[in-house]
């Protein structure tokens, strides 16, 4: 659960008073809480822990990390974490 996958913020919205965003992790899109990164903007890359964006990261490092994950077969593992969860999609009813 400590494996943090970098993703790119695609859109930002509010749900139940909380700043949320749709974040793209190498093709898998997840609803992520952005409350801890008040200045993150659409297009920015961020490192996400268990559904929460914690730090910004520049695009080059994000790409390098994703590439390393892919090389190591870790991307599958990380994305499986993202996919496996149930309820799988929070998009329609964000907390």
């Amino acid at each position: 659960m400590c494996l943090a996958v970098p993703g790119q913020v695609e859109s930002i919205h509010e749900a139940n008073g909380m700043r949320m965003g749709r974040v793209n992790f190498g093709g898998v899109i997840k609803e992520i809480c952005l409350a801890y990164l008040p200045d993150v903007a659409v297009g920015d890359y961020t490192i996400v822990h268990v559904g929460f964006a914690i730090s910004k990261i520049d695009e080059a490092s994000a790409r390098a990390t994703l590439q390393t994950f892919a090389d190591l077969g870790l991307l599958e593992e990380g994305l499986a974490d993202l996919r496996d969860s149930e309820p799988a999609d929070l998009a329609n009813d964000a907390p």
Partner: peptide, 15 residues
């Protein structure tokens, strides 16, 4: 027993 990706998923289930 359910696997969640984020604790917010659990809050959503409670709601």
């Amino acid at each position: 027993v359910r696997v969640v990706y984020s604790p917010l998923d659990a809050v959503k289930l409670a709601r």
